[in-house]
Design a protein around this nucleic acid. Structure first.
Length: 584
RNA sequence: GCGCCCGUAGCUCAGCUGGAUAGAGUACCUGGCUUCGAACCAGGUGGUCGGCGGUUCGAAUCCGUCCGGGCGCGCCA
């Protein structure tokens, strides 16, 4: 519809005689937008105001001359000039009726488009370190990422969802150490535990399993260390940890250390996969950082950086010239001990994404990673890849409250509320809906007490209730021995003359635009707000009029309308990963 | 100090990349179930869009600056 109006305007503007003298004015783009106020019709166009200056004409006069040249259309009932020079379009009833029928005929497909056809998007999200269960912050990432994947697919993009597993590196070593030390407790032997180790119950559970599988590793004599630096608070917790890791590697041997490391890793990844799957977030691929090292991808990436002269050696390390790309300082990619850094993995990973043929690398990252964006983009450029292919959406933090009290969370100390706990408390639907109801670049306050005690007040139920109510009406129809069908009802849509019905039809017709907007702006919250408005208008209608009327034609028309409402609510909720129950 | 995100009703937040009189939810007040589900609806109270300049037909939206909050600035990941 929007495109149709655009074409009408374009034809009219092209027909303006004065435009011939000013070829550059033709560059003014035609913008059609939805009106906010019903009194302004359905669509408005500002082209007359934009062209007024280059054409040295008054906006309202110009608008008049444009309107004279707009071709006839069955979809348009009226065109008028308003305000400073807007051209307002009022759609014909026929246009809305056609839309209702389209909704029911296309069903689950309604609202989808092909605007993203041919675009290959690699969508990476969550990618939490596998050092423990997902917490509520990851839940926000999962909800946002999965909803974005749905939106992008609905608009025709070819989307590949991916979770990057940081299965190499120091954090995993600390986890392996933590598990090993807890294995002693499983066998009734006292063992020290560094202040910086992972302290959650899940570590103890994994250790129980590991102690059974690797009994030889639980040997009190292996706990005897030489001099170690002091642990916090007297000393440096990190130095203490590193000394312990080094010690553990030696007394256990690389193979045993790796065995415990991998047992812990596998156990946690299985847990994360289950958790996300239950939450409706199912990545197509789980991409291992270690695989980058083993396949030589990191070396390849670093070689490309070197070829472009964007790295150098200093102090025994290899540095990437990040300052050439606006970073504050150059960054190490290979340490003086020969090991590559996380950053090296990351640019190699992004190169690998490009090598797999993706046009857009959409990363969903925590807000604390923002300092990283320019660097990775610089890395891509330094490897000869277009830097603009990397697009990053930052997700701001979730602050948990229990009533008035802020809940402090720290993965390392094991003090956090897990995603699983949250889902158990408020349910998947409420959690998914709540997480994407706020813009991702806004901080999110999540009050657990409120979510638990008043879960019935959650806005998700408001929307689901509208859907269930239509189901209920159709069951009532059946109970009364009446029937309804699209084919007989379509002839009576002219009976939908009430204000509430007009408002609903207008709203329904906007849905495809909302899907497009949500996908384009990477903003699923538009769908949330739209659904609330649609549900609100439906509830108002419900309270004001009876659908199962004695007048058959009127009844058929109204039932067609509310079934269209039901279909659109279902489609919108599906994008958000929220169920649409028939009854509740 | 530098960089990124943000500041909109008492509270939590939208505001469709510059449009017409700034919107929801919640809280508070009033009213509506013998009638398709009251997990609902109708009405009311509530705003210098953080402050000040600028850009233009037009600014909550763009630019500058100041104030206030969050996050980041490792040979950690």
């Amino acid at each position: 519809m929007k495109e149709h109006i655009e074409q009408l305007i374009a034809a009219a503007v092209a027909d303006l005689p004065e435009l011939a003298d000013l070829p550059d004015a033709a560059g003014v783009s035609i913008e059609i937008e939805r009106t906010r106020d019903r009194a302004h019709g359905d669509y408005a166009c500002n082209v007359a105001m934009r062209l007024a200056r280059p054409l040295r004409s008054k906006p309202r006069n110009l608008a008049g001359r444009i309107i004279e040249r707009i071709p006839e259309s069955d979809s348009i009932e009226a065109i008028e000039i308003a305000g400073p020079g807007f051209i307002n379009f009022r759609l014909s009833p026929q246009a809305f009726h056609d839309e209702l029928i389209d909704i029911l005929e296309r069903g689950a497909d309604y609202g989808t488009s092909k605007i993203g056809a041919g675009h290959r998007v690699l969508l990476e999200y969550v990618s939490a370190n596998p050092t423990g269960p997902l917490h509520v912050g990851h839940g926000r990432h999962a909800a946002y990422g999965a909803s974005m994947a749905n939106l992008l697919r609905a608009t025709g993009h070819d989307v590949h969802e991916e979770y990057y597993i940081n299965d190499a590196g120091r954090q995993m070593d600390i986890l392996a150490l933590s598990v090993w030390l807890r294995m002693f407790a499983a066998k009734g032997i006292d063992a020290p535990f560094p202040s910086g180790g992972y302290q959650g119950q899940y570590v103890i559970d994994i250790a129980q399993d590991a102690a059974g599988q690797f009994p030889d590793a639980v040997d009190a004599s292996k706990l005897v260390t030489g001099d170690l630096p002091a642990d916090a608070p007297d000393g440096d917790a990190d130095a203490y940890l590193d000394a312990w890791i080094e010690h553990t590697r030696q007394v256990l041997g690389e193979d045993m250390f790796l065995a415990i490391h991998d047992l812990a890793l596998d156990s946690i990844i299985v847990d994360i996969k289950d958790d996300m799957a239950e939450f409706g977030a199912v990545p197509d691929e789980w991409f291992s950082e270690r695989s980058l090292m083993e396949s030589g991808a990191i070396e390849r990436a670093l070689a490309r950086v070197a070829e472009h002269g964007k790295s150098y050696e200093q102090d025994g390390a290899i540095w990437f010239r990040a300052t050439d790309y606006g970073d504050e300082k150059d960054r190490v990619v290979v340490r003086d001990n020969g090991r590559t850094t996380y950053f090296a993995s990351d640019i190699a990973y992004h190169l690998h994404k490009r090598e797999r043929g993706y046009d857009t690398l959409l990363d969903i990252l925590g807000a604390d990673h923002h300092g990283y964006i320019a660097r990775v983009r610089g890395g891509l450029e330094a490897m000869g890849e277009p830097p603009e292919t990397l697009e990053v959406e930052l997700v701001q933090f979730v602050t948990l409250f229990r009533g008035e009290e802020k809940v402090q969370m720290s993965t390392r100390s094991g003090q956090f509320v897990t995603l699983r706990e949250l889902r158990d408390e408020v349910g998947n639907d409420a959690a998914r809906f709540f997480f994407v109801s706020r813009s991702n670049d806004q901080h999110l306050d999540f009050d657990l007490k409120l979510a638990k005690s008043q879960s019935n007040d959650n806005p998700v139920y408001y929307v689901q209730y509208a859907h269930a109510r239509v189901g209920s009406v159709m069951r009532e129809l059946d109970a009364r021995g009446l029937t309804w069908s699209l084919d007989t009802a379509r002839a009576h849509l002219g009976r939908l003359t009430e204000d509430h019905e007009q408002a609903l039809m207008r709203r329904l017709a906007r849905y495809p635009e909302m899907v497009e907007l949500g996908a384009r702006q990477r903003a699923p919250q538009h769908i949330v707000h739209y659904l609330r408005e649609l549900a609100q208008e439906f509830h108002t209608y419900y309270n004001a009029h009876r659908f199962i009327a004695d007048d058959t034609a009127l009844r058929d028309a109204r039932l067609l309308l509310i079934n269209a409402v039901k279909q659109v609510i279902r489609n919108g909720l599906a994008l958000l990963g929220v169920s649409a129950p028939e009854s509740m």
